[in-house]
Design a binder for these strands. Structure first.
Lengths: 212, 212
DNA sequence: TAGATTGTTAATCGATTAACAATC
DNA sequence: TAGATTGTTAATCGATTAACAATC
């Protein structure tokens, strides 16, 4: 199963964030010119992106801010909520638990797990850390549909398999490994090293140009 | 300045990590079949990616592991070190400070800054937190070339401008905003919401297919 | 020789960009 | 009417995939 329009989809949350800001200001209509200027891209790109969601605007005016927001939310499936657990309450895990933007994404991190006894029972950003061994009992009760993996590279595969064994079919993987899981499990790997690689190449290209 | 081969570049660090693992095992030659299998992609993709770095392999055998590693490192500019500072020692900042993979990327986060007086003077993962107001004096002495922004959305623009004013021309932005900076400043924005958007769409597509 | 793999060339596919009529 | 903007259609560009000869 190939996913298409990846670049457009990646831009959606940025539009959404800006649009919510615009809505708070009370601005009813917004044009692709404004969004493009904010993003540092061309208006035609924004127009094509928005078209994917099925929304339509008014010639000479733009799009209704509220309609756009709804439309993007629906397209991303962020209008309904999914129950998630986070495994690995280290600093990255804490950062994610503390991120208050997730409520806008329909992401409800109800529980955090760890194996470190010194962490279990403690609270991080209002959520209690549970023993990862209790996952099987808790997964069903809490109706967990998504697992967020924030453990070390070395234990990520094992954690992923246990999540899958509990019926969790979607995984957001922040560990620096490729997970081997059954084909019906949806995995999204977040590789920040990839971002740094891009930055590095930009820097290298830039200093080349400077020399010329 | 457009950057090309973005998808390939993003995959490079993943190859690199796996290759280092392979090297530690003492395996001298590695084929694109092995790398492709690890990444869950096709060998031809890996071959094209590796070709970008200029490395060549041996028909029927594969590539020398050590040559591949060197080649990817050089291509990414990770063979030399860049001094970086991190601004915003919250949980995300701490996570990055604690990430020990950066030494392999030629990234040397020498300093962390914050404005929170309760954090200043403390140490996180061995690095002292300094007052952000001291940035101008310290930037030159420490030869800072890169700034990593981990502050709240609302202060990111201001922080970025101060970094640029200190001669820092490359910024890795983890705050959830588009920064408006002079065109000669290189910015890489890390938008994890984009990753979650992709995951959400995958889930949505999957449940559609399930119904059919 | 047989099997595996590289690297090149061509074909396909999808994303971005350009142009412009239609609309407010 | 003039200016701004949408949405469609076509053109361009780049990335992915396929095919295969050459090589070990």
């Amino acid at each position: 199963m190939k996913i298409q329009k990846t670049p457009s989809i990646r831009r959606m949350p940025t539009y959404l964030y800006k649009l919510m800001e615009i809505q708070e200001e009370g601005t009813v209509f917004v044009s692709t010119t404004i969004l493009a200027n904010y993003m540092g891209i061309e208006p035609i790109v924004v127009r094509k992106d928005l078209a994917i969601t099925g929304v339509t605007g008014q010639s000479g005016v733009g799009y209704r801010t509220d309609e756009l927001i709804t439309s993007i939310r629906c397209f991303l499936g962020w209008n309904s909520t999914v129950n998630a657990c986070l495994v690995g309450a280290g600093s990255l895990g804490s950062a994610l638990l503390g991120y208050d933007g997730f409520e806008n994404y329909g992401l409800n991190i109800t529980t955090a797990f760890d194996t470190d006894l010194s962490k279990i029972g403690q609270k991080i950003h209002g959520r209690e850390i549970f023993n990862f061994n209790n996952l099987p009992e808790m997964a069903e009760v809490l109706k967990l549909k998504l697992g967020i993996i924030c453990v070390q590279r070395s234990s990520a595969q094992e954690v992923a398999e246990k999540l899958v064994a509990c019926g969790i079919k979607a995984i957001w993987n922040f560990a620096n490994v490729s997970l081997k899981l059954p084909p019906d499990v949806i995995v999204q790997r977040e590789a920040i090293a990839g971002g740094f690689a891009l930055l590095s190449v930009k820097i290298a290209q830039n200093s080349e140009c400077g020399v010329e």
